[in-house]
Nucleic acid binder design. Structure first.
Length: 888
RNA sequence: GGAAGCUUAGCUCAGCUGGUUCAGAGCACCUCGUUUACACCGAGGGGGUCGGGGGUUCGAAUCCCUCAGCUUCCA
């Protein structure tokens, strides 16, 4: 079977991915081997694959494939996340197009549509991941809203509630008027926005004669004046002493509100008079509580003004702002308007400005759970990679705030709280249990009540809480719930796979998700959920901008795979992505990856083409022994990099081993002359090296390696003998002397090529070499390679310099090449003089060091010995160069 | 406003607890080359006073201070 001259990724990728699936190589079952487990950060069901997923999942796949080859029972659990707000928004929009209103069809009907939508679109990302080569155990695919996982969510809610760590209360929440739901603090993105600062005049009730009859308040939100409960001044502000105890009229609506005093007011900002609107600002709310002010909420859930606003009822908050500014101006209440920049919160999901809103919500207390989760990271039970994130993590955990988990949505797990018609409530898993709870509660009040009658009477009035839980309240259980650790905590899978090993995710969700998973792990299982958290960087474009739809600067990942092959793209993604560093993505990296695949392919074609002749002796023992050592040396480095999760460096070390050492040096050393056969021993050794290299490359480039692994040069393979499950290479013996010698010989060959290049001598013209050995190096064994790689026809060892020949040094040894053309004596003298000057300067600095008493006293002995070596080395080289100069 | 981090070749980044000719890698660039594995290639080459300033030390890209610029997180 001959190999096509070009590597065709598409054909290979489909073929082998299907084969792997068919042979169930991705599937894992508990057995006696050591487990290696990763749970995928479940992508959003509304999403499509973007570059961030590509990076994230490439890393996970590299880790899982390597572990699998190293004999571990590797299990990568995939799945998706139901994404309450985003999905509900999509479904609402879809229904709207059909002319259907969510409220009209009701919860049950709506959820039917939502499930349909999820079935249709929810798996897109997972399908796309297959193109990348992701070796997930697809049989284990989970979804955060499937029955068992939902049950886990409900159970954990009840558990925490019983513990007193979940409570219900009226709080100022971040309201998303587009999504019509509260969102958590973490889902609010602050942006600097150009606004206007309106200076509004409030008329004073019974103003003192001789004093101004009004005061002025500066605000960015004139549309909320109808909700004003007071005007606040700083008690120390002498400008406003005359206002103490007064009342003012709210413009346009003429409510009377008091002037209150509080040191909270910044005398420098605005006018020094602050309007207090408890229902529409967090700080004002707190002031309101302190001064017992009423909180009038003038906004509807969708951000329009309600009846309590009295004027502009039904208008959107931003429309109302413009209109009221005009009305104030016309009524003479607007003193002036200034431009003003300030931070405004936007909803992460819908990108509309967040409205602070008072509402009844469910909260999880964070303090108790945060402590063990913080400890885990601080004492190294859980490693954050890179560890610079520990600071951020600690800061957040030490200042953590309670977690608002209710969302005013339908898509998600409904809160297991039940209300009766009187507003009493209980927490229970089912309606039946809720009734029981009510009974327990009421029974205490009246011991004579008849239970059956009580329940029958109550049942029709019981209603479950309308709200659902935050999606993160299900994903924080992910590492536990994917193994059914809630329903059946003693099951085989959970005992075997949990705690998982590595988690690969983005730093943006360190708090959202990672911190909370550690909390959940400790609280519900008593164990950490994972040991290592690899935080990837953000994929940016080459200008450093975040990739975004609106900028249109994100390449289509599937398009990239089609263009460069999955292996090429994987290499491209990893090439420049040290953990935690942002990745400045450039297609050129994928191109480099594709070129690498092509290089491997062509090297393979070379080896495959060799005719082995068993009658030939092996002339390549030296080269073979060298490459074996070099391979083991590189493998040591690669393993070291992997241990530290430096995947890009592990890849680079592999890349250089393959391209430079194997292709550029080793293959050139051993390859026979054109159309000549090769000896059987060299061919066997080379084929063996190639197999080792394929295995080494497999985690990075699974497809091309699998394809070549099955080539006939490796002999017959059984159906299950695949690269994906082949034994990963193990570090073997390293001959340091051989490696050192090889470096010298490579240097020698480069110098000869340089002599040729700089004098424009054709590579076809062979040269003669004389060697004057001043060191211990044994060049004899390497001469064959020098002949071949530098086109040298003859070499001899001499004890005197060759006059009139091109000369150079490698280490301490001198080499001479007689040339037909005359040596340019001047140029040679200049070159040698330069070298001499450099060495003399160097020697001077070394001498200075050694002459310095304090250096000799303070420095470590080995450092001093080293300096003495440097001195001796420089001196002998100087002597040689001086001789050469004299000989010119 | 508070906190953390970053600044090394044109670009993206390595350089561990200060000490070999330590200033590196990949890509890009320049010169030469169509020698049958590969032009998605080969051979060779140029390029940085390690952001500025100061200090500690026998010795600083590496430790300390300070200034400037950038990034992120939190208010």
């Amino acid at each position: 079977m001959s190999l096509s001259t070009k590597y065709n990724p598409q054909e290979t990728e489909n073929k082998w991915y299907s084969y792997w699936m068919e042979k169930r190589f991705f599937h894992s079952e508990p057995d006696e081997r050591e487990p290696y487990t990763i749970v995928i950060p479940p992508p959003n069901v509304t999403g499509v694959l973007h570059m961030g997923h590509m990076l994230n999942n490439t890393i996970q796949d590299v880790l899982i494939r390597k572990a699998r080859m190293q004999g571990k029972n590797a299990c990568w659990v995939p799945g998706t996340d139901h994404a309450s707000i985003a999905t509900e928004a999509k479904v609402v929009a879809m229904l709207k197009e059909k002319g259907i209103n969510k409220k009209d069809i009701g919860r049950e009907e709506f959820l039917k549509y939502a499930w349909e939508w999820k079935e249709k679109y929810g798996g897109i990302i997972l399908e796309q991941l297959k193109k990348l080569g992701a070796s997930c155990d697809w049989d284990r695919t989970r979804f955060t809203m499937e029955e068992d996982l939902s049950e886990a969510v409900i159970d954990s809610f009840i558990h925490l509630y019983k513990k007193g760590w979940i409570y219900r209360g009226i709080r100022m929440v971040n309201w998303d008027p587009a999504g019509k739901t509260a969102v958590s603090d973490e889902e609010v993105i602050r942006k600097e926005v150009n606004q206007k600062l309106y200076y509004i005049k409030y008329k004073i009730v019974n103003a003192e004669a001789g004093k101004s009859d009004h005061l002025v308040v500066a605000t960015t939100r004139p549309e909320t004046i109808m909700a004003d409960a007071a005007i606040c001044i700083n008690p120390n502000d002498e400008r406003f002493a005359h206002l103490k105890g007064k009342k003012v009229y709210v413009p346009l609506v003429n409510h009377e509100i008091p002037v209150i005093e509080d040191e909270y007011v910044d005398m420098e900002f605005g006018t020094g008079c602050l309007k207090v609107t408890p229902a529409h600002d967090l700080n004002d709310y707190e002031l309101g509580v302190k001064h017992k002010l009423p909180a009038t909420d003038i906004l509807n859930d969708d951000g329009t003004l309600n009846e309590l606003a009295v004027i502009l009822v039904g208008e959107d908050r931003f429309v109302a702002r413009k209109k009221i500014a005009k009305m104030l101006e016309e009524a003479g209440h607007l003193e002036k308007v200034e431009d003003y920049k300030s931070q405004v919160g936007f909803s992460e999901r819908t990108d509309v400005p967040i409205e602070p809103k008072l509402s009844m919500q469910w909260f999880v207390k964070m303090k108790e759970m945060a402590q063990p989760a913080l400890d885990d990271v601080l004492n190294g039970e859980v490693n954050l990679i890179p560890n610079k994130f520990e600071n951020t993590y600690r800061h957040w955990m030490e200042n953590v705030r309670d977690w608002n988990i209710s969302r005013q949505l339908w898509w998600g797990q409904q809160i297991p709280a039940w209300y009766d018609d009187k507003g009493d409530w209980v927490v229970a898993k089912t309606k039946e249990e809720a009734l029981e709870e009510f009974w327990k509660k009421k029974h205490l009040e009246d011991a004579n009540t008849d239970k059956a009658g009580f329940l029958a009477q109550l049942a029709p009035f019981i209603k479950q809480d309308e709200d659902v839980m935050d999606t993160w309240f299900s994903s924080w259980l992910w590492p536990i719930s994917v193994f059914d650790g809630f329903k059946n905590p003693d099951n085989k899978d959970f005992n075997y796979y949990y705690p998982t090993n590595d988690l690969v995710t983005a730093p943006e969700i360190l708090f959202f998700w990672v911190a909370r998973m550690i909390m959940a792990g400790r609280e519900f299982t008593g164990k950490k959920p994972f040991t290592n958290v690899y935080l990837t960087g953000i994929v940016r474009d080459k200008l450093g901008r975040k990739m975004s739809k609106s900028l249109g600067n994100s390449p289509d990942p599937i398009g990239l795979i089609e263009q460069y092959g999955a292996d090429g793209v994987r290499v491209g993604m990893l090439m420049s992505s040290p953990a935690g560093n942002d990745l400045m993505f450039d297609e050129a990296y994928c191109e480099q990856g594709r070129n690498f695949a092509s290089k491997i392919w062509n090297a393979f074609r070379l080896v495959k083409g060799w005719e082995a002749d068993t009658s030939l002796a092996n002339p390549n023992e030296q080269a073979i022994a060298w490459f074996e050592s070099r391979f083991n040396e590189a493998l040591t480095e690669i393993e070291h990099n992997f241990k530290q999760y430096r995947l890009s460096e592990a890849l680079m070390a592999t890349y250089k081993l393959v391209w430079d050492d194997f292709c550029a040096w080793y293959l050139e050393m051993v390859k026979p002359a054109y159309q000549q056969p090769i000896d059987a021993a060299t061919k066997a050794a080379t084929v063996n090296f190639f197999e080792q290299i394929l295995k080494l490359l497999h985690p990075f480039m699974p497809f091309i390696t699998e394809e070549l692994y099955h080539d006939e040069i490796f002999g017959e393979r059984t159906a299950m003998d695949c690269c994906i499950v082949a034994d990963y290479p193990v570090i073997g013996a390293i001959n340091e002397t051989l490696l050192k010698e090889a470096e010298l010989v490579k240097g020698l060959i480069s110098e000869i090529r340089n002599v040729r290049n700089s004098r424009q001598i054709s590579p076809k013209e062979s040269l003669e070499l004389s060697i004057k050995v001043n060191s211990e190096t044994n060049y004899t064994n390497w001469l064959a390679n020098v002949y071949k790689l530098a086109n040298v026809s003859k070499a001899d060892f001499v004890s005197d310099k060759l006059v009139g020949a091109a000369a150079f040094m490698v280490g301490k040894d001198e080499f001479f090449i007689p040339l037909s053309q005359n040596v340019d004596v001047d140029a040679e003298r200049e070159r040698l003089t330069k070298e001499l000057e450099y060495l003399q300067g160097f020697l001077k600095s070394v001498d200075a060091k050694l002459a310095n008493e304090r250096f000799v006293q303070n420095a470590k002995p080995e450092i001093i010995a080293n300096e003495r070596n440097k001195k001796a080395d420089a001196e002998s080289k100087i002597a040689i160069i001086q001789d050469s100069l004299a000989a010119l």
